[in-house]
Design a protein around this nucleic acid. Structure first.
Lengths: 195, 195
DNA sequence: ACCCAATGTTGACACTGTGAACTTTGCCTT
DNA sequence: AAGGCAAAGTTCACAGTGTCAACATTGGGT
């Protein structure tokens, strides 16, 4: 029942998510249409309604997959990093993820999805926050529950997140270097120094 | 030719911008339709095309007005602030603007507009950056062109901008306090202290 | 072998952004 | 004051969208 005939009892759901992310990446404006995605997959638009309640639910699934990939990238970055550089590398991974998948990034943190709604989304987003907090704690050499860790995590997250957005919005574009380089420099300066 | 008869040589352009911002504020999803706005103003959808090239141009005008108001709010905050607290107050004004006009804020820094495109938009956005840089310079007691000011401005902007976005995305919602309070606290802690 | 539930399709509807052609209106020139 | 012209607004049309309701197909469990 896995890879047999055309569709019908194939893995439409997974295919939609995969192709949806791909389509999102190709799309200029960052928005995709249900019908376009269905056409690309080779199925009727209404077929998607067997797997997702509506377009928003499908987009939420794309976002959730995005969070999973982001967290994966961050985890790997931390693992490969020199000890003491984990936080910086996690932040850089965040920036690079945003840089490489701008539309998906915007979808993940966007108004399209009401984050209260989808349960999986909030769960996987919370996991991302915990990972960052862990990195902050390690960088400070204290326990994850120590005083000040939560606040520092919030500030770090805010900085990295803001740099990502400004970078994607072309707000660093009028500078000489690549926008990504600008953001990376700003993050590096902030991690070992005052704001 | 200013306030005479119904429309036709009225100030449709201004009206569209004003009502557009209002409609944006009321809209839940943060997106508005041209036709809906036209209906609200009491005019045909195609009439808007006499004043804006297309929907995006209209949205860009809304965003530009948003930048103007944001900058105005920041300026006032700095003016009223205790000396030495100007940077903090400017940042708080930024946060509060985002909190009060979430849809407009998202529009201003969003993928809908290609920021390279609209000339007025880039101009007014750049002015906003300069205002922040000025506040950073004053806070450090150095000249605006001094070394390190540019970088510090970028980091501050990034932090404030990121906190704004996370706040609006409901990422601070699961905490006890109001999301705005969380963001304000994070900003305050960052302004006088390390990251 | 058969039936049923899961999966996919057809047709339809209201809505959207936008182009082309037409109509109205008030100012400027004579 | 008359007239025309350009600016401003309307009508008609079209392709495309998300989504609902009814129908068709299919493969696996009894």
């Amino acid at each position: 029942m896995e890879r047999g005939s055309a569709y019908h009892h194939g893995n439409l759901r997974e295919t939609l998510i995969e192709e949806g992310i791909a389509l999102l990446a190709e799309s200029a404006g960052g928005d995709i249409s249900l019908r376009q995605l269905a056409r690309r997959v080779g199925v009727t638009a209404n077929a998607t309604y067997r797997h997702f309640a509506n377009k928003n639910a499908l987009l939420a699934a794309l976002a959730a997959e995005g969070f999973r990939r982001l967290q994966e990238g961050q985890g790997e970055a931390v693992r490969l990093a020199d000890p003491g550089q984990g936080l910086r590398e996690a932040g850089l991974a965040y920036l690079r993820f945003a840089w490489r998948h701008p539309a998906l990034f915007r979808l993940m943190f966007g108004p399209t999805l009401n984050h209260q709604g989808d349960e999986e989304l909030t769960r996987v987003a919370a996991a991302s926050f915990r990972a960052l907090r862990s990195a902050v704690a390690v960088a400070r050499g204290v326990d994850e529950e120590a005083a000040g860790v939560e606040g520092a995590t919030l500030r770090t997250w805010g900085l990295v997140h803001g740099l990502s957005h400004l970078m994607l919005d072309g707000q660093f574009g009028w500078r000489a270097e690549s926008p990504l380089a600008v953001a990376e420099q700003a993050l590096t300066d902030a991690v070992d120094g005052p704001l």
